[in-house]
């Protein structure tokens, strides 16, 4: 099966960080992959807060998180993956709502089921996660560091379902924009100041 070989679509998207240029709008970029030809950026599909998407097309799933976490599960054999934007650790806490992608403990099995439903096989999945920040340091004074609780719950749930956590970029006090490339399985995490990391 031939897929477009597209380098990380955010390569080069980070403009030089001048003293005053650190907060530029995030603009779509066209990327040239040095190994092959010129490709347009993959279509970006946004996943909203408490939402979830599973896809097998050559697209990038995108979400933006602070204390929430983006959970990305990937089936590399079938180039099929899913992203859930979870808000809370456990579905047993707080008001119950039939929205599995809102909670860490229900989003992971829902994503896995979605991928298996799409590929039709019980393939081995790998996970990458990003988020869990504490944006306002003093809010922990009320006993609420929901970012850390989310991180712990996601790790535990992945272990429970025997899904390998291949990479993570979590904690801190900054938001993250997550781009999940379903062709390569690579996740690009971008901070508001333009700094990027690849997972």
């Amino acid at each position: 099966m031939l897929y477009l070989s597209v380098g990380s679509n955010l390569n080069g998207a980070c403009k030089p960080m001048s003293k005053r240029g650190a907060y530029q709008q995030l603009e779509p970029q066209i990327v040239i992959d040095a190994n092959t030809n010129t490709h347009p950026q993959l279509e970006e599909v946004r996943v909203d807060m408490a939402g979830m998407k599973v896809d097998s097309r050559p697209v990038e799933l995108l979400t933006s998180v602070g204390s929430c976490i983006g959970i990305c599960l990937y089936d590399p054999a079938h180039k099929c993956g899913g992203l859930a934007h979870i808000m809370l650790p456990h579905s047993s806490q707080g008001p119950l709502e039939p929205l599995p992608s809102k909670y860490a403990d229900t989003a992971v099995p829902a994503l896995a089921a979605g991928i298996r439903g799409m590929t039709g096989v019980e393939a081995k999945l790998s996970a990458k996660i990003a988020g869990g920040a504490n944006m306002f340091a003093n809010t922990t004074a009320n006993g609420l560091d929901i970012g850390q609780k989310n991180i712990k719950a996601v790790r535990e749930t992945l272990a429970l379902h025997k899904i390998n956590l291949a990479a993570e970029d979590v904690g801190g006090s900054h938001g993250r924009r997550i781009n999940f490339n379903l062709v390569s399985g690579v996740i690009t995490v971008r901070l508001h100041n333009g700094e990027t990391k690849k997972l």
């Binding site: 602070g66 929430c68 808000m87 707080g94 929901i146 938001g175 993250r176």
Partner: peptide
């Protein structure tokens, strides 16, 4: 307290608290 970040990252903490 003041932070500069993206809009979604700033408000999600409050929305999570409300959701609880």
């Amino acid at each position: 307290q003041m932070v500069t970040d993206t809009f979604d990252a700033i408000i999600d903490n409050f929305l999570v608290k409300q959701s609880m």
